[in-house]
Design a protein around this nucleic acid. Sequence first.
DNA 1: GTATTGAATTTTGCATTCAAAATCCAAAGT
DNA 2: ACTTTGGATTTTGAATGCAAAATTCAATAC
Lengths: 225, 225
Amino acid sequence: MSTDSPIPRRSLHDELAERLRNQIVEGALEPGAKISEKDLCAAFEVSRTPLREALKVLAREGLVVLTPHRGAHVAPLTVADLEQAFPVIGALEALAGELACERANDGEIREISALHKRMETAYKARDRKRYFRLNQQIHEAMARAARNPVLDQMREMLAGRVARARYYANISMPRWEQAMMEHEEILMALEARDGGRLGQVLKDHLAHKLETLRSVIESEGAVDE
Amino acid sequence: MSTDSPIPRRSLHDELAERLRNQIVEGALEPGAKISEKDLCAAFEVSRTPLREALKVLAREGLVVLTPHRGAHVAPLTVADLEQAFPVIGALEALAGELACERANDGEIREISALHKRMETAYKARDRKRYFRLNQQIHEAMARAARNPVLDQMREMLAGRVARARYYANISMPRWEQAMMEHEEILMALEARDGGRLGQVLKDHLAHKLETLRSVIESEGAVDE
DNA sequence: GTATTGAATTTTGCATTCAAAATCCAAAGT
DNA sequence: ACTTTGGATTTTGAATGCAAAATTCAATAC
């Protein structure tokens, strides 16, 4: 019997968690904002049960803070959070890079190279939004090439927590140029399948990303605390 | 006003999640086992609502698998899971070690050194249980000394997923001896505050742990798949 | 004897209900 | 005017209720 792809069935809480996650990561729900169960239930036209289930898992992901008897808030994004998360993301990305060097097939490397070229174009056009998207896609493609779903899962979780910060940080030109140069290095190390080097470059790249954010935040004070 | 320690108030789902997590990690609930909502509700004397909330967060942690309309099962622990998780844990522990070298105060290092000595005693007495406990405590103390709660959280999550495997793996003497030697190295690197070296040793240590598990599993077939 | 059907039973997903806690707000006191 | 107080209102946490889906199992067909 041809067992076609399993009919996709999702529970409400799962769907809700995904949508809320997106809204939080994309900044539609601001850090610190109160999450009203009543309002959200009305907005999504669901009852409180599945919504609350979704909130529990988002809390576990660190995107939401639950305070007993006082409801849910979008997790504030403090400088301390960023300082803690970035080194961890760096370590995970470095591992992803190392594994990708071992495991990526040539097609995947070509794909990443293509993304890189498109990102360079976006950089030259000063198209921040497009640059950002492609940047993210490159890191994702590399993580995929590492063929380690557990690694992926951890990376995504932290990346989501931190991605919200980018809306505050309009990267400065010199920083941007540096980031672009680092990406050149990343691509070269990957193409040479030099895992050790790629890992180190990625770690540094993430450390620099943190510095970029930190300087923007400190001058603009756009983040809590 | 003396605002004494905040009165601890916990929601049921939180308490339930913790207890279930312990039961799963400690193997009281076996990998793959069906989780009957009815039975658990009866056992904990709670209604289904908080229990289901707890199951959702455990699912996000990877300890439980939820299948729509078919209930919850303790997540099976496959060799593939271990192979994926261990390198990630290795990367996280390596980072923890590096940070600990920078940030640990002398007291913390002495504490770890003391744990190490006790572990050595347990090793010489061939007390596997005690050895394992102290081993875990050492890794935890080091993670604490790294002063990075985000890192901690990730580490704990993965460690929990994988800790269940130890009940299957009765480490062989030569492997055990090697592990003990590696721990000597770990302690030396930490005392010398040589972050780079400690990171590398920890990474290797975790890789060897995986090999140990893999060989046991392959000979005994104690894990699914 | 084995496989198949389908009705009874159980289990699951979600909505609703209810009690307890927190918040709001207007009246009283300083 | 500003703070305090206490009751009305809202919100939260958890139990219960209900419909839909899955499982079980005995009766039937092969």
